[in-house]
Design a protein around this nucleic acid. Structure first.
Lengths: 195, 195
DNA sequence: ACCTGAACACCGTTCAAGT
DNA sequence: ACCTGAACACCGTTCAAGT
């Protein structure tokens, strides 16, 4: 028995998964490298063996938040698919505290989180739009979704802090659907002009 | 002559204006209370006489970034007005480095920056929509504008750092106009269904 | 009212050294 | 390969004390 009992070395996946749990527990502002290290029973410097810096770690988290969406089955009508892709993205973002902010900031850094954009683009492309239109509509939709869900999640924190504001989650979901509809209808106006 | 020469006490307006200039010079990540204090030739603790905390300072900056838009003359067609209100908002955000991020983060904190929302709402209301539709369309538009300009401004930083990506500012302006159009067309679809 | 000086409780990151 | 220990160069904020 040359190996001792408590070596406890971590893999990159361990670090990311613990970070994701920590994010959900304490929120983005309190997700520090030092707290993450403590959660892993490790010195802060050890984290830099797995990720070059905090930004890279956050980019990895953004990918994990956005990735595992089951895409929802593709069904005939492109607008139905766009709506469900947007809804699925929203659900993914809502699954982790501050999820939208993590993805938005990562995206604004130019790193990852393009899985989300790709999924929206794919559903829009079913409408038969040219590439530029598809790309632009997808980013417009992505911006709306991230902005909306960021707002929504920060509302959730206020509410959990005891501040009652009224307007339950239904109103939020309705406002979300409304925004998506606006963009979808705008797109439909273009598909008509194609004829 | 009981008064000495260099008393140099600052007003809240001084602090905010210096902060705005510092923001434009160094960007949001480097806009620290300590650097701001240094720029004012003052101890960091002195700032807390003018603003209760950094968040309040940033909210004030957001208001200043968003406020002085001349609204563009209101002219018959509501959709024209919405487009120019959105463009004016974009210009205002672009006038300061990281302007969109400052406004977005302030808005997500629930503080100020509602001048922007009000201006968008006012232009949309000219279309004769009900209040809920107007409010939701305005926030959808605001989310798009903030997301788009954030992205745009972070591109500008990359470019100024020497990284050449192609796609000049024209492409950005076009993409912006496209996004606004999409929402406006979506709204128009609703005004038709009113008849 | 406005500011100083000093402190408190933190940050992200680097780097030599260990196994 | 993965980690420790210690340090560097910072943060935002508080608070007694000065004028």
């Amino acid at each position: 028995m040359a190996s001792s009992e408590t070596v406890r070395r971590h893999t990159q996946d361990d670090v990311a998964r613990t970070a994701l749990r920590l994010l959900d527990d304490v929120g983005l502002p309190d997700l520090t490298m030092r707290r993450l290290a403590a959660a892993l029973d490790v010195q802060p410097s050890a984290l830099y063996h797995h990720f070059p810096n905090k930004q890279a770690l956050l980019a990895d988290l953004a990918d994990r938040i956005v990735s595992p969406r089951p895409v929802a089955t593709t069904s005939g009508e492109w607008d139905r698919d766009v709506r469900s892709a947007a809804a699925a993205l929203r659900d993914g973002l809502l699954a982790y505290r501050d999820g939208a902010e993590v993805v938005a900031s990562t995206l604004s850094m130019g790193l990852g989180a393009d899985a989300a954009l790709r999924r929206l683009s794919d559903s829009i492309a079913l409408g038969g739009f040219d590439e530029a239109t598809t790309r632009r509509a997808a980013t417009a939709l992505l911006h709306f979704v991230l902005g909306h869900v960021s707002h929504e999640q920060q509302r959730l924190q206020y509410d959990s802090l005891g501040v009652v504001v009224g307007r339950g989650p239904d109103a939020s979901a309705d406002a979300f659907a409304f925004g998506v509809d606006l963009l979808v209808e705008g797109l439909r106006a273009r598909v008509v002009s194609y004829l």
